Amino acid sequence: MRQPPRTARGTRTRQALLDSAEQVFAEVGYSDASIVRITERAGVGQGTFYLYFDSKLQIFEELVEDLNRRVRHAMTENATERMTRIEREREGFRGFFRFTAEHPALYRIVREAEFVSPRSLRLHYTRIVEGYIQGLEDAREAGDVGDIDPAVAAWALMGIGEMIGMRWVLWGRDGAAGGSSDPLASGTDVVPEHVFEHMMQFIERALDARPAATPSPVTKEAAL
């Protein structure tokens, strides 16, 4: 791996190549992407590419890391220590959906990583879920959520965010509004407020999932 750029100009050029790669990989996929396409989109010569990256695979893997860093920042930037766990979840999901609306390439690139670079895929999810698990463990110990399994809850919440994001942010970008079961028919690139609120109600109930009180047995006299 090459050393980070030493100048502000080099840092900008490197980021321009990553931004270009994000668009190229999203548009044509890893197989059809080329260094020529990436450098042309970035507006630099092909030789410049090799000042910062060794190969197409390396820039792909570093792009996954770059997107991961930025999406984690988007999910936590508005959270504060004084918030309840549910409030933190709310801010985290809003940040995630904003980021995916601005960077829909995240979905395709992460899915391609399963085949192109499984190591990068695992690293992407591991970095997100580790902090998630720790936050839920702390919330459980503080009595802020119910007696949940933090690992199961973290993976389940990540799944909710990913599928809601795909249905209303990614798949609806060019679609016309349609039925609830049609994944390509949300007609929007943002999660509608009513969808977001229903999702949060579901999450709030799940995280506060304490056993319901066992009803008292009905006696024969009471039944009469």
Rank of each mutant, 00 (worst) to 15 (best):
F53P: 05
P211A: 12
R108S: 08
P4F: 05
R88K: 14
F93V: 03
R14L: 01
H103K: 12
P215Y: 12
A209P: 00
Y132V: 06
I164N: 02
A213E: 11
T100A: 08
G47L: 04
E77G: 01
M1N: 08
G179S: 11
A212C: 00
H124E: 11
L63F: 03
N68R: 12
R140G: 12
L18E: 11
G161V: 03
R98I: 00
L121P: 05
I203Q: 04
V64W: 09
F196K: 02
W155C: 07
K220L: 15
R2T: 03
T219N: 08
R14A: 01
L57W: 06
I86W: 03
T7F: 06
Q58T: 03
A21W: 13
H198V: 04
M200R: 04
P183D: 11
V145P: 08
R70P: 00
Y30A: 02
L17N: 00
V116I: 09
E130R: 13
P192V: 06
I148M: 02
A79H: 04
E112G: 13
K56G: 05
R167P: 13
E197K: 00
T188W: 02
R167S: 14
R70V: 00
V36C: 07
R122F: 14
H194G: 04
R88I: 11
I38Q: 05
I59C: 02
G172W: 10
H198T: 08
T84L: 10
E91T: 13
A26D: 11
A139E: 08
E22H: 07
L17F: 00
R72T: 10
I38N: 04
W155H: 14
E197M: 01
L51M: 11
A79E: 11
P104S: 12
T7S: 14
Y52W: 09
S120V: 13
E89G: 04
T39W: 05
L123E: 15
E40T: 14
E112K: 10
P5F: 00
W155N: 12
